[in-house]
Amino acid sequence: MISVATIFDHAVTLALGILSVSFLVTIYRIVKGPTLPDRILGLDMLVAIAIGFIAVIGIKTGYTLYVDVAIALGLVGFLATVAFARFVLSRGKTEDDILSEAREAASAARRQAKAAAKARSGSAVKGLDPGPVAGKTSGRQDNE
């Protein structure tokens, strides 16, 4: 016959192991997560798992001050998620929007650079204007 204390010890160890696995899986989602809301959701889940960890550790050690830590962590996690949601709303564009904007800006800069180079070679053929001025302006447009 197994004693109750042994069962309890095994249950605590099993709970800690399962929580560690789910912690790692959630971290994988945060690292991989294709969009910002995925990562915010992973952070929220991480807070929930940390509260579970705190409860298990509080039971294991009998140190009941950890309950206050769990409540404070829940409050911080809630406020962080709300603030991140406001940030997603105020940023107002998805990762796809940002990527396509960057691509458009890059192609526009390339077109401008090509036009500037053509203008410079044309002026060099005519022999009117020395190169450095045109080179300087095209360099500045590249940075844009």
Binding site: A11, L14, I18, L19, V25, R29, M45, A48, A55
Partner: peptide, 15 residues
Amino acid sequence: LVIGSFFALVASIGL
């Protein structure tokens, strides 16, 4: 304890 940690594992697998 065991049931709760199992639920956390299911949630992270869903994630």
